[in-house]
């Protein structure tokens, strides 16, 4: 009897693994329903648009983080990179109010690309552990941010109308940020699933030794991934400053944790090699809801972090348990 129950539990676990994303989706739907019942103002067009706009930057960053994690790495420097690129672009726009917004965006991305490339070289060429390399660069980049700003803030009145419109403008009725996030998702969804290079990112994380043996340029791919993460952080930096209309030295401090959390919630395996853009999308949305909707149901915003943390821990522990049960089942099949 007991064995039977156990077997059924195992089957359920196995199903959970297969339908991980479905589970996440169901969880999101239930969460939304609960919130909606407690506060009918939640599922209104206006609020949803708000929520999406607030989650867009997180979404853009999480795509980059997913690629880094796919290769088995991690990037703790992105908060600092956001601050630096945001600060640089804000200072430029203060000095030259006439420049078009697209130049600001490119400028920010260039700054981010430089930082990311540096990390990529450290990790890929010199085999520095990703956590240490990004930790060091994070300190340097924060310091440089304070240096270029001389400790001052750049506030909204110093920014040109065009610069602020980067985040407030609309394309085809969709907020620019959301539109950008959609473009980024589509582009990287295509890249990761539909190009050779994209598939090699998965291969490198799934089994680095096998990648070396079968002639996949592992180091180049790793360097590339950090460079892309940097460029996306640079982009996010400009968006961030435009959206919150202020650039400070400590902008986005600790934000890397949110981004990593979104990736982990979305089912990206921290060991590398597995994770899907669709799952990532759901993970980001879930985190976005937790960030934005809890105040609507009178959960103190100060509870938010602990709740987030617990959900993340629950997600990774469930993952382990599901994997274990799968292995156990495989052993049973051997009939020894």
């Amino acid at each position: 009897m007991k064995a039977d129950a156990k077997l059924r539990a195992l089957r359920a676990m196995k199903a959970a693994e297969r339908y991980r994303e479905l589970g996440l989706l169901v969880f999101i739907v239930v969460l939304c329903a609960v919130i909606q019942v407690r506060n009918p103002g939640f599922l209104t067009i206006e609020n949803i648009a708000d929520l999406l706009a607030n989650t867009a930057i997180l979404g853009i960053l999480s795509v980059g983080m997913m690629m880094v994690i796919l290769t088995g790495g991690i990037d703790l420097s992105i908060g600092a990179t956001i601050a630096l690129s945001g600060m640089v672009s804000a200072l430029t726009v203060t000095a030259l109010p006439g420049i078009p917004p697209i130049v600001s965006i490119l400028e920010g991305m260039l700054v981010g690309l430089a930082v990311g490339s540096l990390i990529g070289i450290l990790v890929a060429r010199f085999d520095v552990l990703p956590i240490i390399a990004t930790l060091g660069i994070m300190n340097v980049v924060r310091g440089v941010t304070y240096l270029v700003s001389k400790g001052a803030w750049v506030s909204s009145y110093q920014m040109s109308e065009g610069f602020r419109s980067i985040s407030s403008g609309k394309i085809l009725g969709v907020n620019n940020l959301v539109a950008l996030a959609i473009v980024v998702y589509a582009a990287f969804g295509y890249f990761l699933n539909q190009t050779r290079m994209g598939r090699r990112v998965y291969a490198v994380g799934s089994n680095p030794e096998a990648a070396d043996v079968s002639g996949i340029p592992r180091r180049n791919i790793v360097a590339f991934v950090y460079a892309v993460m940097g460029a996306l952080s640079g982009l996010a930096g400009v968006l961030w400053v435009s959206k919150f209309a202020s650039a400070q030295g400590d902008t986005a401090g600790g934000y890397e944790m949110n981004v990593i959390a979104a990736a982990v919630l979305g089912g990206v395996s921290i060991a590398g090699g597995s994770g899907k853009v669709s799952g990532l999308f759901l993970g980001t949305i879930l985190l976005g809801i937790l960030n934005n909707a809890l105040p609507l149901v009178n959960v103190s915003p100060f509870w938010q972090q602990a709740i987030q943390g617990l959900i993340i821990l629950a997600a990774i522990l469930t993952n382990v348990l599901v994997k274990r049960s799968g292995q156990h089942q495989a052993l049973r099949k051997r009939a020894i």
């Binding site: 050779r196 598939r199 090699r200 291969a203 799934s206 089994n207 096998a210 996949i216």
Partner: peptide, 15 residues
């Protein structure tokens, strides 16, 4: 020596 996370097809044709 395979890529456990990738599909059979990809393991055959990777690269």
């Amino acid at each position: 020596t395979c890529y456990p996370d990738l599909s059979v097809t990809e393991n055959i044709f990777i690269g």
